[in-house]
Design a protein around this nucleic acid. Structure first.
Length: 467
RNA sequence: GCUCCCAUCGUCUAGAGGCCUAGGACACAGCCCUCUCAAGGCUGCGACGAGGGUUCGAAUCCCUCUGGGAGCGCCA
């Protein structure tokens, strides 16, 4: 049974880099009928925040990356870590180190100056007596010789010399366990079979393998996925506008579109660009993931969002459109009308937010006409077409896009006008601007009464402007 | 500095020795379609980092260099 996990730490906002790792882990588990686990790595009580935890939980929920087990919190497993710490100490795989921070800092400076890699020199390895006045940390006794081979699903075999590694701290002087140690204990206890994470962790892996081995556990399979870089080529962070994943929700992105974008960053299936969630699960394989880092491209995400909007059912769009309309102060319960609006707009909106903004006129009379649009289309010349249109539309027996279209079309023909000369004034009259779905569809969705009211108002507007 | 990773259009990628005058997508430009905006169609622009090998033949294999990234915390 395949068991994967996503283990974010709530010290920063969950951003797209994290989401992609989560997605890969989730897809891998789903693809193989395995289990996906969510684990919150909050051992750093200083920097962890409830807000960040909330974003992780809410983000995963919004994306639909549901965990089969968890969320587990490392902060609630302290007892277990202490137990394993004791075990390591008792077995001689770990020792107490009484070197002070000041001594360690000095050592680091010295090594850096000597152009060496900064690392702990093992001073306390053989210390038998405590040092008065110093609360010791606990270090893992890393093997001094030999090599560790990380058999990575993406990078292949990566070899590390134990001589390059030092004895890392696994418990702070206050007794609390550190990240690299907790990860090892958790992955072991939770029977994780595949660790899928960012390749910034590749360097930590040999130490983790050594600890696993010391604990008598069998290391999991590893897959270090390439990172997502900012436009400047550096690791994604706040200064790249690496915003919370929830920002994408608020900006009107469909979760499946974001997932689609992310899955294609570092992975591909021939020339296919658009994937449904089902296709991702069926086609994704960790072995097909690229080795090289990639750069986030907002334009392509936007395009994919539009593609997914176009392919969605109106009903699905309604679910995501409602909050966007609500943000504009429009609370509508008429799902049928909302669906009709979504359907009319889905081919011309890149985001749901944009769709909402462009759909306000369906629910609320425009406060004012767009100045340029009014100047161009609500003119003396359009008075007759508008009046005629109002009259004929008022007399229609059935209010459908087709009958409306025929009415406007024949009106234009009779007046020897291009269709645009009739349609545009009507568009401005009912929507307030020069952009909307096809005029027949727009009027149909708007309804006869509202249409006639707004035509009337536009006619009055032109008349008033004349004087 | 040391260790590790990576290297095809501006960006995401296809390519696993001959199918490559390197394909697709986003973006950009032009044209077509058209009641607006879109969508769609067509065309254009545009890349194998450099140098050595191996081979009849290399984007594909090997080496060196260069460039980029990551790690080297009592952060995760």
């Amino acid at each position: 049974m395949i068991r994967t996990r996503f283990a974010p730490s709530p010290t920063g906002m969950l951003h797209i880099g994290g989401v992609r790792t989560a997605l890969y882990s989730w897809l891998y588990a789903k693809r193989h009928g395995g289990v996906f686990i969510l684990r919150i790595e909050d051992t750093d009580r200083e920097r962890s925040t409830d807000e960040a935890t909330r974003v992780i939980l809410e983000g995963m929920e919004w994306l639909g990356l549901h965990a089969d087990e968890g969320p587990f919190y490392q902060s609630q497993r302290m007892e277990r870590y202490r137990e394993v710490l004791e075990q390591l100490l008792a077995q001689g795989h770990a020792y107490r180190c009484y070197c002070t921070k000041e001594e360690l800092d000095a050592m680091r400076v010295r090594q850096l100056e000597a152009k060496q890699k900064p690392r702990y020199d093992g001073t306390c390895r053989h210390r038998t007596e405590p040092r008065p006045g110093v609360d010791p940390v606990i270090r893992f006794k890393n093997p001094l010789e030999g090599v560790v081979v990380v058999e990575d699903e993406i990078h292949g075999n990566v070899r590390f010399d134990n001589a390059e590694l030092d004895d890392l701290i696994i418990a702070r002087s206050d007794g609390s366990p550190t990240y690299n140690f907790c990860v090892v204990v958790d992955d072991m206890d939770m029977n994780i079979t595949h660790v899928i994470r960012g390749d910034d962790h590749l360097n930590n892996t040999p130490r983790q393998i050594n600890m696993l081995l010391a604990l008598g556990a069998r290391p999991p399979r590893y897959a270090h996925v390439p990172m997502i870089l900012g436009a400047d080529g550096a690791k994604l962070s706040k200064r790249h506008g690496a915003v919370s994943v929830l920002q994408y929700r608020d900006d009107g992105y469909l979760p499946e579109a974001l997932l689609n974008y992310l899955v294609r960053l570092g992975w591909s299936h021939g020339d296919q660009e658009i994937f449904t969630l089902e296709e991702m699960i069926r086609l994704f394989d960790i072995k097909d993931v690229n080795k090289s880092a990639s750069t986030f491209n907002p334009d392509k995400l936007l395009w994919l969002n539009q593609q997914h909007i176009m392919r969605s059912t109106p009903e699905h769009l309604v679910k995501h459109l409602k909050p966007q309309l609500a943000a504009l102060g429009i609370d509508v319960d008429d799902d049928a009308k909302l669906a009709a609006v979504a359907k009319s707009q889905q081919e011309r909106a890149k985001t749901l937010k944009e769709m909402a903004q462009n759909s306000v006129f369906f629910f609320r009379e425009p406060a004012a006409y767009d100045e340029k649009a009014a100047k161009k289309h609500l003119t003396q010349d359009s008075l007759t077409p508008l009046q005629e249109a109002a009259e004929r539309l008022a007399g229609l027996t059935s209010w459908t896009a087709q009958s409306i279209h025929e009415t406007i079309q024949s009106l234009a023909t009779e007046l020897s006008l291009a269709l645009g000369k009739v349609a545009q004034p009507i568009r401005v009259a009912v929507s307030g601007g020069s952009v909307s779905p096809p005029i027949d569809v727009t009027l149909e969705v708007l309804g006869r009464q509202t249409t006639l009211e707004r035509l009337r108002r536009a006619i009055d507007f032109i008349a008033a402007n004349q004087q």
